[in-house]
């Protein structure tokens, strides 16, 4: 029972991921794409943890943390570039 609910929830998160991907590809401006990228990285973090729980490997949780840190730095760098160039 719990597994079915969990898989449904992760599937819903994947649907959200695809909708965010549409906004990333459709644009219309660079800032919007950056926002969509931020949303995608944010949703990917719990999906990575979900993969860790699904595969029964706790190591994948560390991947989620490192991914979160790098994605945050990436979005900050992108915002800084958009604001005043490198």
């Amino acid at each position: 029972m719990a597994e079915i609910i969990l898989v449904t929830a992760l599937g819903l998160a994947a649907v959200a991921l695809i909708m965010g991907l549409y906004r990333l590809l459709a644009g219309p401006c660079t800032v919007t794409r950056a926002i969509a990228l931020d949303l995608l990285t944010l949703i990917t973090i719990p999906l990575l943890v979900g993969a860790a729980v699904w595969a029964g490997r706790a190591v994948y949780v560390d991947v989620a943390l490192v991914y979160g840190i790098l994605a945050f730095l990436g979005v900050l760098a992108l915002a800084r570039y958009l604001e005043k160039g490198i």
Binding site: A2, L6, A13, A16, M19, G20, Y22, R23, C29, L39
Partner: peptide, 27 residues
């Protein structure tokens, strides 16, 4: 089961956010 339900609620909020990012008019 409680944990899975909480994840479900969280995933519902993520879908709402994705709908929002598609429907809203400006950045």
């Amino acid at each position: 089961i409680i944990g899975a339900l909480v994840v479900l609620v969280g995933a519902a909020f993520m879908v709402l956010a994705a709908i929002g990012i598609i429907r809203m008019p400006d950045p």
